[in-house]
Design a protein around this nucleic acid. Structure first.
Lengths: 244, 244
DNA sequence: ACAAAAGTGTTGCGACTACACCCATGA
DNA sequence: TCATGGGTGTAGTCGCAACACTTTTGT
């Protein structure tokens, strides 16, 4: 504890990322869910709790470079398809000890990679995360809400799915991320009307119990674009909901 | 210049605000415009250029407290009706000399106050700002865009206008902020349908050349709320535009 | 043939734009 | 009574949700 605090004291800056991915419980055929990568703290403030990956900002990098470097170094996430700033967390007492200001990020990993992560990290459902260290839970919530909002008016879905996918898979990803069941029919039409999807010409083999083979689609752009200032995919109209 | 840079060096943090207000050119009866408060730098890096108000983050305050304090202290803006974080600017070379990371804010002042500001500050149109110091122009642009977007799906208009206002005044403010002419008729209907406006019962006296006296309305809430995940007030449909 | 899964046609609704028209005041 | 500005009625459009129906496969 310093006895005197100078108002122009420099302070430490860290970057943190809520890395989200739509994942299926291994083996199970329950629907996949939106999950966040957390690691268990090995040091004392909040030892044993779950926290977001990240670390100190270096002198020669900006915050986005920093979070990308740290994710690549520490948890082997090189497959990030999208990274964006969420907010600054700056409560002077947000962490015990010397002050640290944090810049929080949202990161997205497509579901067809399973990045190798260290022993002490694990994926947790964003809807029901474990007890986290510091203010990290707020960051997870913020990341989830940002993703949900942007699915409605941007092409951000591209960052959740493999390059090529049948509509049913796309539907499962949107449903997992949004937290409610979305209609494959209307999803296809909305995204097509906006010019976001292309038919690759190929089809996926039909499943174990037959059925018409599904056309493989892909997103036209692989960077985020605002496609519609309007939002869509609102939760079903709460009364006659039956979104097949 | 330090000869050795340690990657865990602490660094300075500043807060900056793009304070926006819809203002009329004094005396003129041209339509009002969206303007930003800038002050002329008296110190050497970029001496004489225009810059955003703000300053160093103190050890005992979070970034929002800090920007509110600094605006109150330095430029006598106590009438902020809305403050929100925009983004972190962290390029290591964004300012000459020792590194400073900045958190940028959007601030809104209603048009019925004319805050007393120091000699060396002035309001400038956001559409055509003067040459600014550092990366401050990007912050101004970001603030403008954030305001425009939020006018479409929140009640943020409340922060631009006086407490009570006729629809024609509201229309002028939306038009100034959005940069294109908005229909008073439809503006009233959209905001009413969303439950954002109330009829105060009073009316404004009719102007110099007669006309029906206007009802005075006010916003129902005086804090920001997301009222519609959808956007509205898109520019007129570029072909048959005649938005009276 | 029949089940299963993919995809299309069609209807209805809600929210917005555009614009004609009516209302209340000052001169 | 006329000019001026405020406000309402109403028709057309667009985007989406819902759901019935058709298509294409495996068994």
């Amino acid at each position: 504890m310093r006895s005197h605090i100078n108002s122009r004291d420099p302070l430490a800056h860290e970057v943190l990322a809520a890395v989200l991915q739509v994942r299926s419980a291994r083996g199970s055929d329950r629907p996949p869910s939106l999950q966040v990568l957390l690691w268990r703290r090995a040091l004392d403030p909040h030892l044993g709790r779950w926290s977001l990956p990240g670390g100190r900002l270096r002198a020669d990098e900006d915050v986005e470079t920093s979070i990308r470097r740290q994710l690549a170094e520490k948890v082997d996430i090189r497959q990030l398809r999208h990274v964006e700033q969420l907010a600054v967390f700056s409560d002077p007492r947000r962490v015990p000890g010397p002050r640290v200001v944090a810049t929080a990020f949202l990161g997205l990993v497509p579901s067809d990679v399973d990045p190798e992560v260290p022993e002490d990290t694990a994926w947790h459902p964003v809807e029901d995360p474990p007890r986290t260290a510091f203010d990290h839970r707020d960051i997870v919530t913020g990341a989830r809400d940002r993703l949900r909002a942007k699915l409605s008016y941007t092409n951000l879905g591209f960052a959740l799915v493999p390059r090529r996918f049948p509509i049913s898979v796309l539907r499962d990803h949107y449903s997992a991320a949004l937290g409610y069941r979305v209609s494959a029919t209307n999803l296809q039409r909305v995204l097509s009307r906006r010019g976001l999807l292309t038919d690759t010409g190929d089809t996926a083999p039909s499943g174990r119990s037959g059925g018409r083979p599904a056309t493989l689609y892909s997103f036209v752009h692989d960077d985020m674009q605002v496609t519609d200032p309007f939002a869509a995919f609102k939760p079903p109209s709460a009364g006659r909901a039956r979104t097949s």
